[in-house]
């Protein structure tokens, strides 16, 4: 994985190759929670992972999520975001299936 690292004694940023990981929190609601049978879990993903990478990872782990994930949108830290959003350590990620509030 490529990324930028600020090294000691150097003023600029240099491109390096590293394999740091970070942790993100996934919360599951409604039909997704029923399928994975838990309401949250922490996932270890590479630094600079995108929402799209997390989708791929979850579908490998829980193939039965496929149909509902196709109809779900992404939220990070309580806001709707596009799939090309980059994640940061400690982010809370939720895939939101079609909502049905009201009456």
């Amino acid at each position: 994985m490529f990324g930028y690292l600020r090294s000691k004694g150097s003023r600029g940023r240099k491109k390096v190759c590293y394999t740091n990981d970070m942790k993100i929190k996934i919360r599951y609601f409604a039909s997704l929670r029923d399928i994975v049978e838990q309401s949250e879990e922490w996932l270890t993903v590479p630094d600079n992972a995108y929402i799209a990478d997390v989708r791929t990872l979850l579908l490998e782990r829980y193939p039965r999520l496929q149909p509902i994930m196709d109809r779900s949108v992404n939220a990070v830290n309580h806001s709707y975001v596009p799939a090309e959003t980059e994640l940061h350590d400690g982010d809370e990620v939720v895939f939101i299936p079609p909502t049905g509030g009201g009456c």
């Binding site: 609601f29 409604a30 039909s31 029923d34 109809r71 939220a75 709707y80 939720v94 939101i96 299936p97 079609p98 909502t99 049905g100 509030g101 009201g102």
Partner: peptide, 19 residues
Amino acid sequence: TVPIWKKEVATNGEAWVEG
């Protein structure tokens, strides 16, 4: 747009309602 979901429990089983 508000993340609230509704599960219908009916005579012929239960299901999450979309929309």
